[in-house]
Design a protein around this nucleic acid. Structure first.
Lengths: 330, 330
DNA sequence: TTGTATGCGTTATCAT
DNA sequence: ATGATAACGCATACAA
């Protein structure tokens, strides 16, 4: 590989001048500039990023930590982040935490070691205090996941409203016996807390009781959904509707319901979450919650770059709208 | 950030010794080694990768170029590559070409500028000669996509066999009027050529005619599938079966067929490709071709790392098995 | 077993 | 407007 010295030698100028040309500095005469370009062309020169980093302390690389890239929600999110960043000349490093605390720490360390200029975190695995500590090494944005503090910029969806809309919709349809699935826990704090609150709020507001028997935690896959339905089947007192918090789970519920002779939505109404392609493939088509994933990714990317380039910039928290898509499963 | 000099100063030793400890060199006494660790710990030291790269010319980073990460096939492939690489201490940079020639070139340039130690190419956008040229700058592997030359290591699926199995299956079921969709073109060369050949071979072998009217190119999405079915509907001479080359397209075909009062597989048998989750959600469940994506990713990753670490290693070409999964759409 | 000195490719500082 | 030189953090050849 040609270096800046080679270019300097060939063009008969100094490294400094070449560097000036590369970085579009002023005070370089037209003809010398041309000479340099000529030489760069001839040598097929391109600057060595490692050297630039060592020198300039900037990597033009953003790290994104996601649980799993094979989850369509995150692959779309990453896609939006990446496209936006690319346009602005930034690379995106994608890291999969697999919901593992140690991996998350390992990735956060990239900020410390300056492999990335900033990190976009789409889910939090460790205690927040632990994660927050890394902010001293560079900018960090929470995108999708969030915390109840004001110590880091956040771009997120109004998850509570999402759950609220889904449940409210069911209640309006006359349902009083409503089951609830979450991908997280059913705690005040922790994963899925927001949707839980939205659920609670909608139920309380309409004076509908929450039956703890009908709460299912840690549900993610199609198979999980099938399993939930099997459990429902064994109950003497069954719900008439179920909010699943995931299109996959919803699809599983529906498939298994039909297999067992139930009719959706007559015997059981089902609400999903995400509006993934499969929502329009299950039959009946899924009523679900649509989230503006692309918008969220784009915003996160833009904010991050701004934070990197303007060290004193502190973005506002943002909560993006979310909507109910009514189809035929309710 | 602490540097190696800080560690040297604090431990009262030289940079060299510290460096030796970091890189597990022999000839460092137990106690000095301990001192160094002690100092590193105290300072929260971690080596600066940019400096290491500049010095050592190794990045422990592999680049993967995919068309789109939101395509589940590629997100699973990338996932497998990444997991394997991560275990061996390599990072993976994911690049989306969006099937754009220029983007592909831009990414290949990362090899030239040593941002990555090697590149795994999962699809080829430019002419092969153009791409091949970049091999002089570092190792390259073709994974999934391939060429008819012996100039680069390849790990791929037996796509021809995949298509062959699908078509053969249809013919065995008594079908003679078979439509064919491809995500590429219907040329001897170019995208999808292999599946085309498998299709041709199965047809010819059984003496079944190929009707050019029933060939559809450049089909990818669910919507594309719906569209294909609408076109079929307008024909007076209709096929009795269709091989789609994509589960999404197959799902679209089935959805639209049912919407128009056709029964699958009685009126139209449908074969997909990929065995994605939705294959078990459409009704009837999709007969499809299953590809060992994870295996392919793992192998590509392993081979690449070997090529990086042993400069004279030239991996064998590999063609991975592929299988037919019969469900109820045929 | 340990340390000194040098260079990797770039950019910023200071002269000229 | 242009150039000489130092410095970024690290790893190695060589010396001791």
């Amino acid at each position: 590989m040609a270096t800046i010295s080679d270019v300097a030698k060939l063009s008969g100028l100094s490294k400094t001048t070449v560097s000036r040309v590369i970085n579009n500095h002023p005070y370089v005469s037209k003809d010398k500039r041309a000479q340099v370009y000529e030489a760069m062309e001839q040598l097929g020169y391109s600057p060595n990023p490692a050297a630039r980093r060592l020198r300039g302390q900037i990597t033009t690389t953003i790290g994104v930590i996601v649980p799993k890239i094979v989850n369509p929600f995150f692959s779309h999110l990453v896609n939006a982040i990446e496209q936006t960043a690319y346009q602005k000349g930034y690379q995106v490093l994608i890291f999969q935490s697999y919901e593992d605390k140690n991996k998350e720490i390992a990735f956060l360390n990239l900020l410390k070691t300056r492999q990335v200029d900033g990190i976009i975190l789409t889910s939090i695995e460790n205690k927040w205090e632990v994660v927050a500590d890394y902010q001293q090494y560079g900018p960090m944005i929470l995108c999708n996941d969030y915390i109840n503090q004001n110590t880091v910029p956040m771009i997120r969806l109004d998850q509570a409203k999402g759950a609220f809309l889904g449940i409210e919709h069911l209640i309006k349809q006359g349902h009083q016996k409503i089951a609830y699935c979450t991908g997280g826990l059913f705690d005040e704090e922790g994963k899925g807390k927001d949707r839980n609150n939205g659920f609670q709020k909608a139920m309380t507001q309409s004076g509908v009781n929450v039956n703890p028997q009908w709460i299912f935690i840690d549900q993610h896959s199609i198979e999980d959904g099938r399993d939930v339905l099997r459990q429902l089947l064994e109950m003497t007192n069954r719900p008439t509707a179920i909010f699943t918090g995931s299109d996959e789970v919803a699809a599983g519920v529906i498939m298994e319901a039909k297999k067992n002779g139930l009719t959706v939505p007559r015997d059981l109404a089902v609400v999903g979450f995400d509006d993934q392609p499969l929502a329009q493939i299950v039959e009946p088509n899924l009523t679900t919650i649509r989230q503006p994933v692309n918008l969220m990714g784009t915003k996160a990317s833009e904010r991050m770059i701004q934070m990197i380039e303007e060290p004193h910039f502190k973005p506002e928290h943002e909560q993006l709208p979310i909507e109910l898509v009514v189809r035929s499963s309710t």
